[in-house]
Simulated scan of single mutants.
Amino acid sequence: MDEIILVLTNLPDRESALRVANALIESRAAACVNILAECTSVYCWRGKTETASEVPLLIKATYNTYRDIEKIIHALHPYELPEIMAVSVRDGCPDYLNWIVQATSVAKL
């Protein structure tokens, strides 16, 4: 089976989160994208502590489509340096993991 990954990113608002999520699904780079509730992020940027409201995305995909996911996020994300991190999924419901593989097997990019 292809390696399953969970990609994490944050966007500044729900509208941009929906735009990225729809592009990922329409291109079949991702099988599912969860748009979570707004959160507060605290981080260091250019030597200063910053605080921002952000909308997290959980992106379910395979490692084979990771580069497509990264390209889509970079193309649509308004930040100069968007967070894009992929985490390997070690285990899960076999039927669900197989569905992720099937849903992303024909990426349209």
Rank of each mutant, 00 (worst) to 15 (best):
V42P: 05
G47I: 03
S41A: 07
W45H: 06
T49P: 03
S16G: 03
E50V: 04
C39P: 04
E15I: 02
P12F: 00
E15H: 10
A52Q: 00
V20C: 13
T51H: 04
I25A: 12
V33G: 15
P56V: 03
Y43L: 03
R46K: 12
P56C: 08
A23F: 00
L24V: 09
S16L: 14
A31S: 15
K48P: 02
R19V: 00
V42C: 06
P12N: 00
R28V: 01
E38V: 02
G47S: 02
P12A: 00
S53L: 10
L36V: 02
P56D: 10
L24Q: 13
N34K: 11
E38C: 02
V33A: 14
I25L: 15
R19N: 11
R46A: 04
A31I: 01
V20A: 13
A21L: 08
C32Q: 13
S53Y: 02
V55E: 11
D13N: 14
R14W: 00
K48Q: 13
L36P: 09
V42E: 04
T40I: 05
S53A: 03
A17N: 10
G47N: 05
T51I: 07
A30R: 11
S41Y: 07
T51E: 13
D13L: 00
E26G: 10
L24H: 13
V42R: 07
I35G: 14
A37V: 08
